[in-house]
């Protein structure tokens, strides 16, 4: 899933400063799951902004709506008729959602309320970890199912940098060294020999990527 987190309220207030009638649009997929942009967060952000508006004597009129998936124009189109009356849409989706929304809604400014962080998975209550970097050339078969591209701070594919201390990455002390995890997994799988294979430098992916299924 896409993992995102709310922008600081001050930044959001700055973005909507010049608008009067604003729609806060939540997204019911990834950002709901990562507790950042679902119906509940929409409600909280709306209440927060209304309170802030009141404090500052701003006549913000704020409404709420949550789409099932903002990154699909067909879902966004469902609210298109209703958005005409707004001066701006504050999207609580990931960057993909914000852009789909912007493109689909036409002439209304669509503003991001979240910062999109990474692709990841759940890690305990309220926890999410980056697991995939979308490099386009998956090597998980050789790394015990642990991705060093996403989970090693330097994205090293030939083994650890040597900077780990007590199994933790030197860049973020609460993050396990990906290569330490790889070693343990390969040891358990009886595949330590894979560590000796060199990985040729990856061909870097070209942005923006596009995928069209052949019909």
């Amino acid at each position: 899933m896409m993992v995102a987190e709310a922008k600081p309220l001050a930044e959001i207030q700055g973005m909507i400063q010049g608008y009067r009638k604003i729609l806060i649009a939540g997204c019911g997929t990834c950002v709901t799951v990562c507790l950042s942009g679902g119906a509940q967060q929409v409600e909280i952000l709306a209440a927060s902004l209304r309170t802030a508006g009141k404090q500052q004597g701003l006549a913000w009129e704020i409404n709420e709506e949550t789409q099932l998936r903002q990154c699909d124009p067909m879902f966004v189109q469902q609210i298109r008729d209703r958005t005409g009356e707004y001066d701006a849409v504050l999207s609580m989706a990931c960057g993909a959602g914000v852009q789909t929304m912007a493109e689909t809604l036409g002439d209304i400014p669509v503003l991001p309320a979240l910062d999109t962080l990474f692709f990841g998975g759940a890690d305990g209550q309220g926890g999410f970890v980056e697991l995939c970097a979308a490099c386009g050339q998956c090597i998980l078969s050789r790394t015990g199912g642990v991705c060093p591209v996403a989970r090693c701070a330097k994205g090293l594919t030939d083994g650890p940098c040597g900077g780990a201390q007590a199994g933790k990455c030197e860049v973020a002390k609460d993050t396990p060294c990906a290569w330490q995890l790889i070693y343990v997994r390969l040891l358990r799988l009886g595949q330590l020999h894979l560590l000796k294979e060199s990985t040729p430098p990856k061909a870097r992916r070209v942005h923006p990527a596009r995928l069209v299924r052949e019909g």
Binding site: P160, G162, A164, G167, Q180, Y183
Partner: peptide, 25 residues
């Protein structure tokens, strides 16, 4: 380079494996 003082166990093992790769390279 190599870090002979890497974490005993996995850390050091991987330093040695990587050293081998460097020599090979």
């Amino acid at each position: 380079v190599v870090n002979p003082g890497a974490d005993a166990g996995a850390g050091l093992e991987m330093q040695i494996i990587k050293l081998e790769k460097k020599i090979e390279a």
